[in-house]
Simulated assay, not measured.
Amino acid sequence: MTEADGKRAAALDPRPLGRTGLMVTPVCIGGSPLGSMPQVFGYEVSADRGVATALRALRGPFNFLDTSANYSDGESERRIGAALAELGGVPEGFVLATKVDRDPATGDFSGAQVRRSLEGSLRRLGVDRVPLLYLHDPEHISFEEGMAPGGPVEELVRIREEGLADHIGVAGGPVGLMRRYLRTGAFEALITHNRWTLVDRSAGELIDEAVALGVGVVNGAPFGGGVLAKGVDACRTYGYRPMTDEVVARIRRMEQACAEAGVPLAAAALQFSLRDPRIASTIVGVSRPERVDEIARLATMPVPEELWAVLDPLAAPPDTWLH
């Protein structure tokens, strides 16, 4: 193995996830597309392909897989569960994470709903516990409702005390709300998404605060929903929202700079997150088995240091960020 090969292999070595004691690879495979969510991603994923993708994810080169009770009405978990059954259980050292969700029909996000959500997840995954369990998208209720006696956070803490989840986290969008949840001291991990990328830097202070609190940071959606992988000619939304002309122009300039450096825009977008020492792992959704190896290639591809100096000032103006 050459020195360069060794450095690229080391780039995928596990890192500590905050104070949890878990060691996770810098890439986490995201399970949302493998359950088939055409209303979000624009394409169908068959059950066979979803299970095959989960199998590839569970066999490496990454040791971290993220899903949720509400991804495709539990279908993501069902397909992961089928893959786990084929393997005979969760591989040694593998970190399987899922999330408790509100009831999609009624909006109920009570403590009782959190318990029902977890029980459904364990059943679909075919496991009796998970290493990591997140409160998912608490922006759908007020912070006061989230923290109320008998509410979702209290129940999530109880679930951890019972040993059904080794560690708990919070996963959501609005950075101000996520900071309020972190300050409760209840959470050991954070997922922020679409808010720390080449384009959008909304989550910078949130990530700083998480690190100061010893909370493990997981950064989701480094491609902003696709545009930082496919380019603006193929995708005209960021975070599933229409982009302004200013943002489109900046991403075009990023594409040009990457092309001149001989680096795919997707590699730069992924490594922007991977190279940040504050971030333990970065979630990349997959829907095909071969994408797992493609992500490993993008994660370890050499990127000239001078390219970062060109890309950094091309981030979109703060008034376009998701916050």
Rank of each mutant, 00 (worst) to 15 (best):
residue 3 E to N: 07
residue 97 A to I: 00
residue 197 T to I: 07
residue 90 V to Y: 02
residue 138 P to I: 08
residue 178 M to A: 12
residue 209 E to S: 09
residue 217 V to C: 05
residue 120 G to N: 12
residue 37 M to V: 08
residue 182 L to C: 00
residue 202 S to A: 15
residue 165 A to M: 03
residue 114 V to S: 01
residue 91 P to K: 01
residue 61 P to N: 11
residue 82 A to M: 15
residue 134 Y to W: 09
residue 214 G to K: 04
residue 3 E to W: 05
residue 103 D to E: 09
residue 236 R to F: 06
residue 284 V to M: 12
residue 318 P to Q: 02
residue 216 G to C: 10
residue 235 C to A: 13
residue 67 T to N: 14
residue 164 L to M: 04
residue 310 V to L: 15
residue 176 G to I: 07
residue 11 A to H: 08
residue 124 R to C: 01
residue 87 L to K: 03
residue 131 P to E: 14
residue 52 A to E: 08
residue 196 W to M: 14
residue 270 L to M: 14
residue 249 A to Q: 06
residue 45 V to Q: 01
residue 26 P to T: 02
residue 126 G to L: 03
residue 151 G to H: 00
residue 177 L to C: 02
residue 290 E to H: 10
residue 143 F to Y: 13
residue 198 L to V: 10
residue 278 R to F: 05
residue 270 L to K: 13
residue 26 P to M: 03
residue 173 G to A: 14
residue 244 T to W: 07
residue 99 K to C: 04
residue 68 S to W: 15
residue 27 V to T: 11
residue 302 P to E: 11
residue 193 H to I: 07
residue 322 L to T: 13
residue 197 T to Q: 09
residue 157 V to E: 06
residue 140 H to Q: 11
residue 16 P to W: 08
residue 263 V to E: 08
residue 64 F to I: 06
residue 189 A to L: 07
residue 32 S to H: 09
residue 231 G to T: 01
residue 317 P to M: 03
